[in-house]
Design a protein around this nucleic acid. Structure first.
Length: 397
DNA sequence: GTACCTTTGAAGTCC
DNA sequence: GGACTTCAAAGGTAC
């Protein structure tokens, strides 16, 4: 996928999608000729989303379900209009003096030299956003200079362009104020950069999932309290990370017991033990955008259904300029970088359901059913032995 | 109680 | 290398 990592600011990654988005009207013309194509159904959904944006009705989602047939021919011009409106809205978001509801602003900036709750990290800054400060800079744990034309601390090859080089771990210490000894020496009290990415929302009508009475809890809005209280929730480095979540709910259920296999006593015993926290994937650019804009869309459209909201956000994402998208690509890139720094052995594969489904150790067990490999690097002979054993397991299954 | 929906992007897997 | 799959967030909905 296109990323900033290619080094050029022009390669922001949304080209294809943006082109497809612009061609949407042509497709809809074809749809009028073939009323029962699959594209028609997809277009219907988009039209319904448009309607939700226009009507801003809290019942729009319900209406969508109930009257899909009636709304099949929703005028295309409304979509074009909405695209313009949404573009205007999104474009204006960076110009708005106040930045209400911008969730990232409420948290300390761990990567600024003075990372204590600062002007850019408390609620006051929310309404002082625009004064010589890029609105997104506050969202960043990386400081305002991130969007400045020539960040002083950036490597020379990154200064004048948004280009990114993938391997710049040496830069992270400057970016994230990491101690020279590496992440393992980061004080546990330091706010995790993701807090600014997954924060509590401002009290001005936005959701605030956890009590703000507890200072520590408010600083870890994305963490369940159990995660914050227990050392088991900590990363080995001692750093609480928003990507670390206890395997509760859906994931826990899917990963530890799906009824796929009978539980031996060992399994039952394992369940009594504290569950290992799951390291989540770092958020990509669009996910970061959604996190930021969801509350705004909810407020504007009075929608609550995430599926419909995400459709709107997807359209708005395409409506963003490349420069606007670049900010989120850059954020996502830093998220991935820090994630890699903190969890060098972690792989997205670790969270694949298949391994946990069969009760396999993420680090050592060979996943026979799906053939995905363990995280460790095995001796070739060991690998062959595991391969053979996995085939036997597969045959027995 | 939990899967599903819906979006885009990153990463992994497969052929 | 391209196609495909999975998972990140979110919360209402359906079963």
């Amino acid at each position: 996928m296109p990323q900033l990592s290619s080094g050029g600011g022009d390669d922001l990654g949304a080209n294809d999608e943006m082109i497809a988005f612009k061609d949407e009207g042509e497709q809809e013309e074809k749809i009028q000729e073939n009323a029962f194509t699959e594209r028609d159904l997809a277009d219907l959904k988009s039209s319904l989303v448009n309607e939700s944006e226009i009507n801003q009705s809290p019942n729009a989602a319900a209406v969508r379900r109930g009257h899909q047939g009636e709304q099949r021919g929703f005028p295309e011009k409304h979509r074009e209009h909405l695209d313009g409106v949404s573009k205007q809205q999104d474009g204006g978001m960076y110009k708005t003096p106040g930045y209400p509801g911008y969730p990232f602003l409420m948290l300390p900036d761990p990567y600024l030299p003075n990372s204590s709750p600062s002007v850019s990290s408390n609620k006051v800054s929310v309404v002082q956003q625009s004064h010589g400060m890029h609105p997104l800079s506050s969202l960043l744990p990386y400081g305002n200079e991130h969007f400045s034309p020539s960040p002083p601390h950036l490597p020379t090859d990154m200064s004048q362009k948004t280009g990114v080089h993938r391997h710049q771990s040496q830069d992270l210490s400057g970016y994230y104020s990491l101690p020279p000894g590496g992440v393992s020496q980061i004080s546990p009290s330091m706010s995790w950069q993701g807090q600014t990415v997954y924060p509590a929302l401002s009290p001005c009508g936005f959701r605030q999932p956890y009590s703000s009475n507890l200072p520590s809890a408010s600083s870890y809005s994305r963490f369940p309290h159990s995660l914050m209280l227990g050392p088991s929730s900590m990363h080995p480095t001692g750093i609480p990370h928003p990507a670390i979540v206890p395997p509760t709910g859906k994931q826990e259920h899917e990963q530890y017991d799906r009824g796929m296999y009978a539980k031996p006593q060992v399994e039952a015993k394992r369940e009594k033990e504290p569950k290992k926290p799951v390291i989540k994937k770092p958020l990509n650019a669009f996910m970061l955008y959604m996190k930021e804009m969801r509350a705004k869309v909810i407020a504007e459209c009075t929608l609550k259904e995430s599926a419909a909201i995400n459709q709107i956000l997807g359209r708005r994402w395409h409506a963003l300029t490349r420069e606007e998208q670049a900010k989120y690509y850059e954020l996502a890139r830093k998220e991935r970088q820090l994630h890699m720094q903190l969890y060098p052995t972690w792989s997205a594969r670790d969270n694949y359901k298949c391994r946990a489904r069969f009760g396999l150790n993420q680090q050592t067990d060979w996943c026979g059913p799906c053939r995905c490999v363990p995280n460790i690097h095995l001796h070739p002979l060991h690998s062959i032995a595991l391969l053979l054993s996995s085939k036997l397991i597969s045959a027995s299954i």
